[in-house]
């Protein structure tokens, strides 16, 4: 059985016929060919590497059917810097060495971008709790947290 879907990904409309059982993450990778969204835990909803924004909110794209995103807006990591200019969070990950192998990074960037919109001035504990849905096996999280804190500090000092 197939479903017709029209999904806006990073501002571009993808109209496709897909198997009803197709997961959003597979649609993003195989139909939109946006391979920045990763599959880390064989679709179990555990690792968070496939985190994207659905209508602006961080969700795990392996836990959604592509059909559920029909007529919705999806943003992937490629959509953060469409013109090649990195966001402050991406810059901070670079300067604070917030990644090593980089496999989990796309999902963490998408989750923390949404997190910082909702919590502009989080404590370190709140950042740690915000990261619970993203597994990183390289960094030990310290540099990731430093990168997020750097953006928070930059935003706060800009305000004062």
């Amino acid at each position: 059985m197939v479903a017709k879907v029209a999904i806006n990904i990073n501002g571009r409309l993808f109209q496709e016929e897909v198997p009803e059982r197709m997961l959003l993450v597979d649609f993003i990778r195989e139909r939109a060919h946006l391979t920045g969204t990763h599959i880390g835990c064989t679709y179990e909803g555990v690792c968070g590497a496939c985190t994207v924004h659905l209508d602006g909110e961080a969700v795990k794209s392996c836990m959604l059917l592509a059909a559920q995103a029909d007529e919705h807006k999806v943003t992937t990591v490629e959509g953060l810097a469409p013109d090649g200019e990195l966001t402050p969070l991406q810059e901070a990950f670079k300067s604070e060495h917030g990644l090593q192998c980089g496999f989990c990074t796309a999902g963490i960037l998408m989750n923390m971008t949404d997190f910082l919109k909702r919590y502009p001035n989080p404590s370190e504990q709140e950042i740690r709790e915000g990261l619970i849905g993203n597994l990183c096996r390289c960094t030990g999280y310290v540099h990731i947290i430093n990168a997020v804190r750097k953006v928070v500090q930059e935003n706060q000092s800009r305000k004062t």
């Binding site: 909803g45 985190t51 961080a58 969700v59 795990k60 836990m63 989750n111 997190f115 619970i132 849905g133």
Partner: peptide, 9 residues
């Protein structure tokens, strides 16, 4: 429950 991505859905 779970994590914030899960709580968003």
């Amino acid at each position: 429950v779970g994590d914030r991505q899960v709580r968003n859905r």
